[in-house]
């Protein structure tokens, strides 16, 4: 009897250990993908290829600052567009929150207009690409239930199911998280029939100041066809960005020294 109890206790604690581990894996992956350093900058070359093979490009710079009183929590982001010509000098600002809607602003230079943007479905296209807003800013880990379905030499394979299925277009998604760096290397989104229709791939990783960083990635979506690649260059971390960069002042007058 005593032995049996011990065995049961052992099983329970094993269960617990496993449960902690998957959440830890997801938390570390979230950190590795979106929260490295206290702030950061990257130039992004985005190439959108549609189902007919036509190419369009977007060229922009992202500045990011973690709001300091939360660990892997609220962030402020500033996106400054250079190309194509019709969005040149347009700036986009997000105050990302874990709870409630993000605050978003758009600055249209030709009108000198600071426009407040109604929060939209996070799972709609970011600037016409195959990436969603949520892929760029990060999906909050507590929105899904996570199960570690497999462990290989290189990866933790985590399957995630949304707690609120009405708010998303997928049934589940599966993430291949690299064991040493916790970078998500591949993410597949499945529909109700279990078919993968949308795939994220990290194509290239570089060590930037000690932070393992995805510098090339691709998103493809079989529902609309085609894919988008994002190449990151001039990546920097821990630049001591001031919080006031993420205000109306710098929407109207972009902080050039960070955007060159």
């Amino acid at each position: 009897m005593k032995k049996l109890l011990l065995v049961i206790a052992g099983l329970v604690s094993l269960q617990t250990a496993a449960a902690i581990e998957v959440d830890e894996v997801v938390a570390k992956a979230n950190h590795a993908a979106y929260y490295q350093g206290k702030d950061g900058k990257a130039r992004v070359q985005m190439t959108i290829v549609d189902a007919q093979g036509r190419e369009r490009s977007r060229n922009f710079t992202i500045l990011r600052l973690d709001v300091q009183d939360e660990v892997d929590g609220a962030q402020k982001m500033y996106v400054y567009f250079n190309r194509p010509a019709d969005v040149n000098k347009t700036a986009f600002m997000v105050w990302k929150k874990l709870e409630g809607d993000d605050d978003r602003w758009l600055y249209l230079p030709a009108l000198d207009l600071v426009k407040r943007i109604a929060s939209s479905d996070e799972r709609t296209s970011f600037v016409g690409s195959h990436f969603f807003y949520e892929d760029v800013s990060g999906r909050v880990p507590t929105e899904d239930r996570h199960v570690l379905v497999e462990e290989t030499d290189n990866y933790y394979v985590v399957e995630s199911t949304p707690l609120n299925a009405d708010q998303v277009e997928f049934a589940t998604y599966k993430n291949w998280i690299h064991k040493q760096t916790f970078l998500p290397v591949r993410t597949e989104f499945y529909n109700d029939n279990g078919q993968a229709y949308r795939t994220y791939e990290a194509l290239k990783v570089e060590d930037i100041g000690g932070y393992q960083t995805v510098t090339e990635s691709r998103m493809s979506d079989s529902r609309i066809g085609g894919h988008t690649t994002m190449g990151y260059s001039d990546v920097q971390y821990d630049m001591d960005l001031a919080e006031d960069l993420f205000t109306e002042r710098y929407l109207r007058n972009p902080p050039r020294r960070y955007l060159r």
Partner: peptide
């Protein structure tokens, strides 16, 4: 039924 594992990106 399980799809194959992803190839590691360049850099990993």
């Amino acid at each position: 039924g399980l799809s194959s594992e992803p190839t590691l990106p360049s850099g990993l």
